[in-house]
Design a protein around this nucleic acid. Sequence first.
DNA 1: ACCTGAACACCGTTCAAGT
DNA 2: ACCTGAACACCGTTCAAGT
Lengths: 235, 235
Amino acid sequence: MAEMLRRAPLSRDRILRAAVALADEAGIESLSMRNLAQDLDVVPMAIYKHVANKDELLDGMIDVVVSEIDPLVPDADWKHTVRRRILSARQVLLRHPWAPLAIESRNMATPAILAYLDSMVGAFRAGGFSADLAHHVMHAMGSRILGFSQELFDASRRAGRSGTTNPEPPAALPPEVAARFPHLAEIAMAASHDNESVVGQGCDDQFEFEFALNLLLDGIERLHQQGWTSSRRPR
Amino acid sequence: MAEMLRRAPLSRDRILRAAVALADEAGIESLSMRNLAQDLDVVPMAIYKHVANKDELLDGMIDVVVSEIDPLVPDADWKHTVRRRILSARQVLLRHPWAPLAIESRNMATPAILAYLDSMVGAFRAGGFSADLAHHVMHAMGSRILGFSQELFDASRRAGRSGTTNPEPPAALPPEVAARFPHLAEIAMAASHDNESVVGQGCDDQFEFEFALNLLLDGIERLHQQGWTSSRRPR
DNA sequence: ACCTGAACACCGTTCAAGT
DNA sequence: ACCTGAACACCGTTCAAGT
């Protein structure tokens, strides 16, 4: 009768989904082959039947995350198309805070990421961009094209934070650092003063992300309209 | 007589410099407390007299790297000041390819980084930026303000690569991926066609970095000139 | 042929025994 | 009081012994 309690048979897909869930809930530092096996009610070595090693497991997890990004919906306006996709990617990353670091540390072009990038280049080309400009624009967007926030100190990268705003009330700047770094203290104040009631509630991450994204896309649009070309490069 | 061969006494500074050298030469994945101790001709536990644990060691290494960035030289032109400093930071990171990932994974504001950021905010303020605009501009620059390249797949992040251009001749895109991702293949071509002689030599990383940096700084200058303010934020 | 437990070669860090 | 070897609690992965 013990057989009746047996779990679904192990598969690469079931392993990847369990690994993503484990990283989401407990943090990427808790993702070990042994912990994952325990979550799957399986002996550690059983996992190696389906993934060659931990690096391949991470690549698979990255592909799972990328596959959650909304497909690109073609539109007459390239800016709208690109913007919408990137905001969707950002929403996915908020659900998987470990993903940016995992992607950067793996430093490998998985098929899913290549397909994502390819479709983004396609959106620029469909918008009338030259291959030359599209090339440099893709470099300039960098990891932001996958929805990365690129903040130096990202509270949401720590243990699974879900909201889009930082809830800690005073934590923005401890008084002793505010004294040593007056410019930082000043702009920290500037962040909170226009929000009525709550003081020092921190930044609206969504606003900062869209501010940066608009800055980039507006600049890109200007280059496109000016017919920018890379010929006659410096050096 | 064996005493005559004794190394200089251990100190936090000597440990940090040895750790940076080890990470530079062998990669961050080779930096273990045990390997580091061996490089220092010391028993592993001796290190713990000077740093509390490995995380504190990493923080110290990050501060060493940040301290190598040229000091900010004030100038009438904020754009020139900021641009020059960031290009200097990038040169430092080229010498320490492990640093960006280490900084992102630590996710901690060390005093050296705070001082760096504070001085950058100061440059914007001296250029006439409001605290409000300076705040959002710092967020928009993100890790780029420390010279991060933010490339999704950065060859220089792998084992200590020193040059500023990728030397591998054909490696840009293997033919089987070029077939599946035509847009990527196209822009890869666009990168190499205007360089005479060598085909598919890859991108000029310095050019791509400056292209992105100019895009950002030009956009920021435009907002500044227009007297941008965050009042009446969306939502 | 397949599965799996033990074992190997590492980690970071604690701790107690030695001086 | 200080130093340090052994030990502990982990890793990812190999491998041989079991079925």
